Amino acid sequence: MNETIETILQHRSIRQFKDEPLSEEQIRTIVSSAQAASTSSYIQAYTIIGVKDPVKKKKLSELAGPQSYIEENGHFFVFCADLYRHEKIGEWEQADVIPSLESTEKFMVAVIDASLAAQNASIAAESMGLGICYIGGIRNDLESVSDILELPDRVIPLFGLAVGYPEGVSDVKSRLPMAAVYHEDTYQRDEEAMKAELDMYDETISSYYHARTAGKRSDRWTGQMAKMLSGKKRMYMKDFVEKKGFNKR
């Protein structure tokens, strides 16, 4: 097993960072690594915003939770799906690009491009001895996030990425059994086998929480998912996405 794979398999979310900013060289390396990710048809439909302003970080922290590690980290990145520059290219090249930019396909391309870039950035950061935590909480109020970051139409903030020097390291949290996520040739729909896999996984996760919290928690993964998905969350998203010029066709 090489060092890259070891870094990937040792991933865990870090939610407490030392009070030490990243250097400009580290930031450039992380962003350059993000840009090296695969991109559909070379479209590069994303933008990364580094947030240094403590006032803006505090506002983002409050919108997302509050989550203190948005304020207290080495650097905070926001990854955005971005087709704004492509709209401008259409204007400058006198090409009718709007129907394409408003398509569900290009919406998916922008989200996927940004996600691939972010994962490259995360692996690069972790390979440098840094810790990371993805922040989906900024989607609690994307209108406000867009205002804080002064985002034009055709730019959607997708998630944040807190990066910094870890203040303590938690255990790696087990993922689903490989058989649950990797199928060959066809989707495996044996419900008894699926239930058996998830029951075993529930035992693993329950033991993880029990050990981590000295017996205060013993959550099952399936119970967590049922509770989470039973609630309505961020139901404004479709309207917001369309308002920003995405996913209209």
Results as ranks from 00 to 15, higher is better:
79 F>Q: 02
84 Y>A: 14
80 C>F: 02
107 F>D: 08
99 P>F: 00
92 W>G: 12
95 A>F: 14
77 F>L: 08
84 Y>V: 08
91 E>W: 14
109 V>N: 04
97 V>I: 15
103 S>G: 00
120 N>P: 07
95 A>V: 14
103 S>K: 00
81 A>R: 00
123 I>W: 01
109 V>H: 04
70 I>N: 03
85 R>P: 05
108 M>A: 13
80 C>P: 00
118 A>H: 06
120 N>H: 12
86 H>I: 15
88 K>H: 11
116 L>C: 10
111 V>N: 06
72 E>R: 12
78 V>C: 01
79 F>T: 03
87 E>T: 08
81 A>D: 00
81 A>S: 04
97 V>L: 10
72 E>G: 09
80 C>D: 00
95 A>Y: 15
117 A>K: 03
98 I>A: 12
82 D>V: 07
82 D>Q: 05
98 I>P: 12
78 V>D: 01
71 E>W: 01
79 F>W: 06
94 Q>C: 09
119 Q>I: 09
116 L>I: 15
97 V>H: 09
113 D>R: 03
125 A>S: 06
106 K>N: 15
112 I>F: 10
97 V>A: 07
70 I>L: 09
95 A>G: 09
124 A>R: 08
114 A>W: 06
91 E>G: 05
90 G>D: 02
90 G>V: 02
76 F>G: 05
118 A>T: 12
114 A>C: 10
107 F>N: 13
84 Y>P: 03
93 E>C: 09
124 A>F: 10
87 E>D: 13
92 W>L: 14
109 V>A: 01
83 L>H: 03
79 F>S: 01
73 N>E: 05
78 V>Q: 00
80 C>H: 00
90 G>K: 03
80 C>R: 00
76 F>A: 06
119 Q>S: 08
70 I>T: 05
79 F>K: 00
91 E>M: 09
122 S>D: 14
116 L>S: 04
120 N>A: 06
72 E>I: 10
90 G>S: 01
102 E>Q: 13
104 T>I: 13
89 I>M: 15
110 A>E: 04
97 V>C: 07
122 S>M: 12
76 F>H: 05
86 H>C: 07
89 I>G: 01
123 I>L: 13
125 A>C: 03
125 A>T: 04
70 I>K: 02
114 A>T: 13
93 E>Q: 13
80 C>M: 02
83 L>S: 04
124 A>K: 09
119 Q>V: 09
116 L>N: 07
78 V>E: 01
79 F>H: 02
120 N>S: 13
115 S>T: 10
89 I>S: 07
74 G>C: 04
82 D>S: 04
84 Y>M: 12
100 S>R: 12
115 S>K: 01
73 N>H: 03
104 T>K: 15
73 N>I: 07
115 S>Q: 03
111 V>D: 06
120 N>F: 07
94 Q>L: 15
83 L>R: 09
108 M>T: 14
78 V>A: 00
111 V>W: 02
120 N>W: 04
123 I>D: 01
82 D>L: 04
97 V>T: 14
102 E>C: 06
96 D>H: 06
85 R>T: 05
91 E>P: 06
94 Q>A: 12
98 I>C: 07
86 H>P: 10
122 S>Q: 14
104 T>S: 15
91 E>S: 08
96 D>T: 02
124 A>I: 11
